[in-house]
Write a protein that binds this DNA or RNA. Structure first.
Length: 511
DNA sequence: AGTGCAGTTGACTTT
DNA sequence: TAAAGTCAACTGCAC
């Protein structure tokens, strides 16, 4: 009989509750990764995810090898893989982390649970990060998070009694039906890489995080870049959080206030990470249904939907800053948070396109795709939650604010690089003779902008606010309040006013 | 010195 | 991690 550790998006041996539990059983341990071809057919998945995963798995195998075990890869449906292993070796217990993922993985986990119950195999699931499953008490959430994250981390087992099984080869991207997905500046996967990033961020790179995180230029180096490693679990949230707190204390002691504050911003974003994933955990349908039903059908899918989404995701909107963001994302697999919000909002408001296909296209581009952050954010930036303020970004203002010298634009839209700073943010307003002199032919060397952004924003604002004042909105808002029982609604009127007067923050997402 | 005034800043409101 | 508009307080300057 063997204990199986089913690795999913927790690809590490450190601070790993499932591995620890299996190891301490004393029985032979099978470290299993199930490569599920059907998962890779989901519209969110892409070649860069596959490449990053392969690196993570190789790193995990190295870590297991150092402890006398190996990673065993099996290809197929989780239930049938587990069924075969159980038939051949007998599974004494199946250990895994809880996964908050796509509806597809949600359904697969339920199928595995059903199978385990029928087969008489104990299926033991452990909390991942700070996300709570089936929690009733909304008020205690932050406290529980804090307690979980401050608990001691679990050391990696020093030696594993391994069940020696043959590992299968990881299918390559083409074999899984994934399109060619060149990403020349993609981050490397694996815990070693994640640890290096976290260390360099907390020791040097992060000093100007607070100021630089929103700029497309400096953000790439000033941000931690551990998101992909958290998404696949190369790093645990607990060890990341504790490392950040230690660094913050060190910088305070060194009287480097700027660095300490930057680390503080990072820490608050770690809370935010779990806070958002919790939304998808509680309401998996956020992946495909407008949270607020009054918005269903607000953006009907027209005949030009596909062409507009393609122009947007490929960086051909005619807005230099938006296009630079999209092209940079394609090449690096990463974009800072503010620019992610901007491009999603641009698609939803200026282009007035339904959020689902764009969200899938973005998911494929993000090496750090995390369903629990991605979908709640996509809905928020599209203004369909009914509880968040309508935020329409001005792509030209963002360009002037975040890239005043046009350096980022020139890097990613070199066809515009000869334009002077005054016009690089909005080439359509440049005099024709200037464009000609600088070799820019709108509609030829660079696209004509898809929309007049000011007019489009005006129309979008009216439509978005139109929903909020309609009778359907109020009815559905009441339903959401009832279902999710937001605490704010229970406050006495005076305090409710006082609270709502507070500056609303992006992290608030009370249903 | 005090006044008028254009321009700036920041808090706050509206969309 | 919205943007634009409003308004009052403030600032720098000319006279």
């Amino acid at each position: 009989m063997i204990h199986v550790v089913w690795f999913k998006r927790d690809l590490r041996v450190h601070d790993h509750a499932a591995l620890e539990a299996a190891a301490s059983s004393g029985a032979p341990v099978l470290a299993l990764y199930i490569l599920e071809p059907e998962l890779w057919r989901q519209p969110e998945m892409s070649g860069r995810h596959h490449a990053f995963l392969a690196e993570c798995l190789a790193d995990l195998d190295t870590a297991l090898k150092a402890r006398g075990a190996r990673l065993v890869v099996r290809v197929g449906e989780a239930v049938s893989v587990l069924h075969d292993l159980n038939a051949a070796h007998g599974i004494a217990a199946l250990h895994a982390h809880e996964e908050t993922g796509l509806l597809w993985t949600y359904a697969r986990d339920r199928a595995v649970r059903r199978w385990a119950r029928k087969a008489g195999v104990p299926f033991l699931e452990y909390r991942q990060h700070g996300v709570l499953r089936a929690h009733g008490d909304r008020d205690g959430w932050a406290k529980t998070w804090e307690r979980t994250m401050r608990a001691p981390t679990q050391a990696a087992p020093s030696h594993l009694r391994a069940a020696s099984l043959v590992s299968h080869d990881l299918p390559d991207a083409g074999g899984l039906g994934l399109e060619d997905d060149p990403c020349p500046d993609r981050q490397r996967g694996g815990r070693a890489e994640g640890v290096t990033l976290l260390r360099s961020f907390l020791a040097t790179r992060g000093r100007h995080y607070r100021k630089a995180m929103s700029t497309p230029l400096d953000g790439a180096a000033a941000c931690s870049r551990v998101s992909a490693h958290l998404a696949l679990g190369c790093l645990s949230m607990r060890e990341t959080y504790q490392a950040a707190l230690r660094a913050q204390a060190r910088w305070r002691q060194a009287e480097d206030a700027a660095f300490a504050q930057s680390v503080g911003s990072f820490v608050s974003r770690l809370h935010w990470h779990c806070h958002f994933i919790q939304k998808l955990e509680d309401e998996p349908e956020i992946e495909r249904r407008d949270l607020h039903q009054a918005y269903a059908g607000l953006r009907p899918i027209g005949p030009d939907h596909e062409a507009l989404v393609a122009a947007w995701i490929e960086g051909r909107t005619g807005f230099p800053f938006v296009d630079a963001c999209m092209r940079s994302l394609r090449s690096t697999g990463w974009l800072n948070f503010r620019m992610r919000s901007m491009v999603m909002a641009f698609s939803s408001y200026h282009l007035w396109q339904d959020w689902r296909r764009p969200a899938q296209a973005l998911a494929r581009q993000f090496t750090d795709f995390e369903p629990g952050i991605h979908y709640p954010q996509a809905q928020m930036q599209s203004g369909v939650t009914g509880v968040n303020v309508v935020r329409i970004y001005n792509p030209v203002k963002q360009s002037r604010d975040q890239d005043p010298g046009g350096v980022f634009i020139r890097r990613w839209a070199p066809e515009l690089s000869a334009l002077p700073d005054d016009f690089i943010h909005e080439p359509w307003s440049a005099p024709a003779d200037l464009l000609a002199a600088r070799g820019v032919r709108l509609g030829d060397s660079y696209p004509v902008r898809l929309v007049d952004h000011e007019a489009a924003a005006r129309v979008a604002r009216e439509k978005a606010y139109g929903v909020r004042t309609g009778p359907a909105f109020r009815a559905a808002a009441r339903a959401i309040q009832q279902k999710h029982g937001s605490r704010k609604s229970g406050l006495p009127p005076t305090e409710r006013r006082a609270r709502s007067a507070r500056k609303p923050s992006q992290s608030e997402f009370d249903f």
